[in-house]
Design a protein around this nucleic acid. Structure first.
Lengths: 209, 209
DNA sequence: GATTGTTGACTGACTAGTCAATCTATTCTG
DNA sequence: CAGAATAGATTGACTAGTCAGTCAACAATC
């Protein structure tokens, strides 16, 4: 299926990486398969040797990344940590993912996560799983009395994930300043906003910094 | 530009409304211009009498709706209300918009993110304005000491808007239960989450209900 | 008869996916 | 170990179909 690591060029990977750049630059629908082949420096037909269709290239990119995230969430969930730290780990993972490969995250968000009627529908089950795991964490925190019970866990999970995704969107479209510092800060910020809230009212054991 | 209100069939409006349904059902890229014309019950060519291109139909839908929202945000901003109520009014407007015309909001959320990518940055300026207005409200609340100063207003604005948008996405994808009650509840919920936070710690002048 | 609205067949450009040929690496055989 | 056989990798010209946008004609209205 794949070549030995190190020496071989691994054209399949080459094509996937090229596809990320092309999809990010032009969008999935606007780019041609020949653009991907050109970017990868391989022949047109080779794309179809490794992938059944243009769609399958995007599917592969999405699933590879999303499964890593699902695994991370499951791992975090299994550990006996406070919710804040669990949510922090998830936010960190997503933001680090963007930091490490902004093009890939852009493609996933723009072409899959928000794409009803196309790829979003295809992967809805996988996407849902992530939301449900987060919802479960929140639900547990509610049972423990750490989180308010009046806010449905499912809704809170969506709000939490949406807040993170919107930060990425802000970076993608240049609406927010991006950079090492901003990324680190954003991790804390999103958790603080959702858990502690924006209001000052709760002064007491506020540990800032 | 448009016909007199009331009597005339106003084919332009007919085409726009049909486009909303078709875009929502099939997606912008997957649908043909003939689908829009058929849905509207007009001839293919008439679409090009009123719009320069398929893109322009989508642009029009987006701008019409987004400008109404901008106006609402400006109005709310001008009034001397507590932040919570201002943010609540924005959340209410967006959720009511979805309640009133889910197809249109679906199209705007699903297609415009991608459109912002491929259509050039035409809409980015308009979108940015909304975020800046919300950021301004939060900033002001921080100056008044109602909101924590450590969370940058711009980021908080994105998180707030992202939380709302993700709720709509949840409804669009059928990930969240939808209905009159859920919509009303979601309005309160998103504001409570972002302003008060999910944590219970701040017990004191918590006014639920 | 001039202006504006309306029609739908047609065209021209574009592109996903196919396929037969060629190349490369590895194994088999005498 | 030559060299034959096999399997997989790689190539790119080609096909078959799609669809946005045009246009010339016709209808309605003033």
């Amino acid at each position: 299926m794949s070549a030995a690591p190190g020496t071989a060029p691994d054209k399949r990977r080459l094509i996937l990486n090229a596809a990320v750049r092309v999809f990010a630059r032009q969008g999935f629908h606007a780019c041609r398969v020949s653009d991907i082949a050109d970017e990868a420096g391989v022949a047109y037909g080779l794309v179809y040797h490794y992938f059944a269709s243009k769609d399958e290239v995007l599917d592969t990119l999405f699933l590879e990344r999303w499964n890593v995230m699902l695994e991370l969430i499951r791992e975090v969930d299994a550990q006996p940590l406070p919710v804040r730290e669990k949510l922090g780990a998830i936010a960190s993972f997503i933001i680090d993912s963007y930091h490490h490969d902004p093009d890939l995250m852009k493609v996933i968000i723009v072409e899959v996560t928000r794409a009803a009627n196309s790829f979003g529908d295809t992967h809805i089950g996988t996407i849902r799983e992530a939301y449900e795991l987060i919802g479960g964490m929140i639900s547990k925190a509610q049972a423990e009395g750490v989180f308010k019970a009046e806010i449905e866990a499912r809704f809170a999970a969506m709000a939490f994930y949406g807040a993170i995704e919107q930060l990425l969107t802000g970076w993608i479209f240049g609406l927010l300043p991006a950079g090492e510092e901003e990324f680190e800060r954003a991790k804390w910020l999103v958790v603080e906003t959702v858990c502690g809230g924006l209001e000052t009212s709760a002064v007491g054991e506020a540990q800032v910094g």
